[in-house]
Every structure is written in C-alpha cells, then in structure tokens.
Amino acid sequence: MSRLAAVLWIFSAALIAVVLFVLKYEVQRLERELQLVSRQIVVDQQAVHVLKAEWSYLNRPARIADLAARHLHLEPLSTAQIVEIEAVPTRPVPGVKPPPPRKFVNAERRP
C-alpha cells in the first residue's frame, strides 16, 4: 500500500515536472512569436503610413480630373439632366387619353 503510494507520488512529481518544462518552452516560443508579430506590425504600420501618403498623392484632384478627362467619356452632370419624378410621363394606356405632361425647366438659363 505504502509502496504504491510512493510510486504514485514519484510518478505524479515526474509528470508535473515534464508538464512544467513543456509549458515553459511553449511560453517561450509564444513570446518569441509575439515579439516577431509585434515587430511585423510596426513594419506593416510604417508601410501603411507610407502607402496612405502615396494614396493621397495619387488622388490629387487635379490628377484624377486629368485621368477622367483622358480615359472616361463622361461630362459633368448638368442640371438639365436631373428631373423630378412627376415630370416623367406615365405609361400610356390604350384608349385613355394621357394627361398633358407637366413642363419643368430650370429656374434660369445661362446668359
């Protein structure tokens, strides 16, 4: 009985020692990893910082305007292109005379 207890005690002590060392090395490994990741975060943050500046530089309104003029076949929206929904005529129903369309124009014309 007492021998069994002793064996159990020794075994558990050995087990705990092994577990402790495994844990310790695991923690050390994780700490190294954390350090690496932190360093990588700083590097990435620096890169993001530089890229943000570059993004702002590439998005200069004058440059965008130039690119749009060269590559897009678009024009600035004129107010004549915007109408109220009421100004759109309803779909004609056969046999029913459509109501006269309401005329909308802009408040002023360019002199």
Partner: peptide, 8 residues
C-alpha cells in the same frame, strides 16, 4: 444639393 426645377 438637389437642383430645383421651376415651372416654365
């Protein structure tokens, strides 16, 4: 800002 159409 929405442009305001005015009746003719």
């Amino acid at each position: 800002i929405k442009p305001i159409p005015v009746r003719m």
